Amino acid sequence: MNQTTMTAPAPAIPVRRGVLRRWPEWAPWAATLWALGYGLTALGWTLTGVGYPIDPADPNSAMALLGDVPADVGAPLFAAVALAAAGTGAVMARDRRGARAPRWWRRFAVGFGGTLAAVLLVVVPTTRLLALVGYLPVIVFRAPFDAEIRADVAAALGVDHVHQVVALVGGFLWAAATVAYARRTAGSCARCGRSDRTSRVATVRRWGRVAVYVAAAIPALYAATRWVWVAGVPMGMDEQQYAEARAGGSLWAGAWLASFALVGTVLTLGLVQGWGEVFPRWVPVLRGRRVPVGLAVAPASVVAVLATSGGLGLIKVGLAEDLIISAEWAAVGPALLWPLWGVTLGWGTLAYWLRRRGRCADCGAR
């Protein structure tokens, strides 16, 4: 007797239509529009000689990797690169050849987009942007009730901060656009990138825990030096400078950043702890619910980028002024580890995302 084996159809994967979940579709166009807008703005700096956001005469520009680039060089260079990026991005966004795209063009587009994203994320931002993020909580809570803080914030913020934020947004857009295009032209799923390269994913996840521990230790070391100063020990700091800082109260500003760094240490450890995936019982309202992946990945990615760029800027200053081998080693020394902090935090964040990404809503792969 013949028997027919009936196979139940595989359950359909719900198609999610959220804007963020469609990022492979709109990211190339968004990156193109960003490049066009930036390019036209830089062209305006070039033609008018007004508005260039980097001032080599500013003492704070010493910490900027691009701080020595004058307007007559930087403005036309930025305009040319951005307008070329706009043209490249438009081709990437309209290209529907997939894996049939010419190899030379794919290499150029991916290389150009990746390099541009790296420059915007790591080279343009400075330590000042990282410091602003560190002081943001105290600014938000105290500024409404303290006119002096509001005045200080208004005086400190300038066009250079706006420029760095714009560059940061552009860097993430170009990173997303390049990843989406690279996946599409390699024949992989544009959203999740799953392919037969499982060994790379396994390597990232295998070393993810180690990376998280390193990323958590570095800000804790920085915090320890600042709280030692507040406790009255001028470790690794000139005694006269220490006395002036203590009298002026600036040590407490460093202590605030130290406290924020310790909060960052705890949150970083959440990337490898159970409470980093499910809200613990002591969290009101949210207890027992799963932590949204983006709630951990987005801020960790921003901090990773800012720590890397800020650390490179401090290394530049340290080498130029021989601070690395001076008696004031504690003032600069822990910050020289920030590039390592940024890289390991980025690695740990990627491992966390790979662990929690689940089934892809587009291709169905796990």
Results as ranks from 00 to 15, higher is better:
Ile325Trp: 12
Ala27Pro: 08
Ser301His: 06
Trp341Ala: 14
Cys189Gly: 04
Thr349Met: 03
Arg128Val: 13
Pro125Cys: 05
Gly232Met: 09
Trp353Glu: 07
Trp29Ala: 06
Trp23Thr: 13
Arg97Leu: 08
Met237Ser: 10
Thr198Ile: 07
Gly89Ser: 03
Ile324Cys: 03
Leu66Ile: 03
Thr268Val: 09
Ser301Lys: 05
Ala147Trp: 09
Thr344Asn: 14
Thr349Ile: 02
Val302Glu: 01
Ala243Phe: 06
Phe172Lys: 10
Leu36Phe: 12
Thr115Tyr: 04
Gly18His: 08
Ala217Gly: 15
Val204Gly: 01
Arg21Glu: 14
Ala211His: 07
Thr126Phe: 01
Gly49Asp: 02
Leu295Asn: 12
Ile139Arg: 00
Val201His: 09
Val69Gln: 10
Gly111Leu: 08
Arg142Glu: 10
Ala361Met: 13
Asp322Gly: 02
Glu239Gly: 11
Pro334Met: 13
Ala93Ser: 07
Val291Thr: 13
Ser309Pro: 04
Phe78Tyr: 07
Met92Ile: 04
Leu251Met: 00
Gly232Phe: 10
Ser195Leu: 08
Val81Arg: 04
Val119Trp: 06
Arg246Tyr: 13
Ser188Cys: 13
Val50Glu: 14
Gly310Glu: 06
Gly87Thr: 11
Arg194His: 06
Pro144Tyr: 02
Met63Ser: 13
Arg128Gly: 14
Ala42Gln: 01
Gly264Trp: 00
Val50Ile: 15
Ala151Gly: 11
Arg209Phe: 06
Leu116Trp: 03
Gly187Val: 05
Gly114Leu: 10
Thr41Arg: 00
Gly49Ile: 02
Ala35Ile: 02
Arg21Gln: 14
Leu47Thr: 11
Ser309Gln: 03
Ala296Asn: 07
Pro144Gly: 05
Arg97Asn: 06
Gly170Val: 00
Gln164Thr: 01
Val305Thr: 04
